[in-house]
Amino acid sequence: MKSQKWVPYAFLALPLLMYSIWVIFPIIQTLYLSFTDWDGVSPELSFIGWDNFKLLFQDPYFKISLWNNIKWLIGFAGISVPLGLLIAMLLDQKFKGSKVYKTLMYLPMTLSFVVIGQIWSWILEPRCGALNSFLGIFGLKSVGWLSDPNIVTYSLIMAASWRQISYAMVLYLAGLKQVPKELVEAAWVDGANGWKRFIHIILPMLRPATVVAVTVSVIDSLRAFDIVYVLTRGGPFYSSSVMANYMYIMAFNNYRMGYGSAIATVQFLITLGFIVFYMRNVLKKEEAL
């Protein structure tokens, strides 16, 4: 019955064509450019083999960027996801106003990163920003949230987590629909017993949500860009740089398209592992296909 072989291809023709032009072919082109010294301007480019990659692994700022991506990864997958779960558990009980509370928690997800960046820029402003003014009430010293090289990356992760935690919470709220409400409530009020129940019963039931939340958070942390770009552009002196941001600076500020492509390629290869993991988990149940 489904024997006419051309039928699915007819349906796929247009979407696949567009996808190839704007997504697949560009990926291949970037892979190719990463082996050249193209400056983004000259009509000619020369093939330089692995030189970009060799240079990359000696580049101290690339190392900082990579290391920062790992911090993002830990912040997103290791902190945002559990916090999202915690808040979901908290709000997934029967109480007055639970709907309003949830709606308010969702709000950060509707904002663009440009807006989020702006909001946080006046929260984190060092001299009279909201956070330092607030600390000032308690007589605490001002912190250079975006200027202290040892702190800045964590400040950025904090700003991004505002949205990421909301997202993890949404996923867990959906997952919790499979869990009886009494169980959730019992987990909170039952002390040690409740904790055991949470670990042994609820958490396993939430496994699919966890897989998605963790992998997506990992992938997002590896391609983080917007917040960094809006708030610090990777500064001061690359201390808050991440791979995506460093790539953008190299390619579009310093006119090293070849080198920038090499960074994108490395980023791509690192992400690839997680993408494969994601697909295996999400598409695993598709054996019927």
């Binding site: 984190l124 402003e125 250079g144």
Partner: peptide
């Protein structure tokens, strides 16, 4: 000025 790395030139001019 402290924390100069988080200011644009206009922010700093404001002081």
């Amino acid at each position: 000025i402290n924390n100069h790395t988080s200011y644009s030139w206009q922010d700093a001019a404001n002081y």
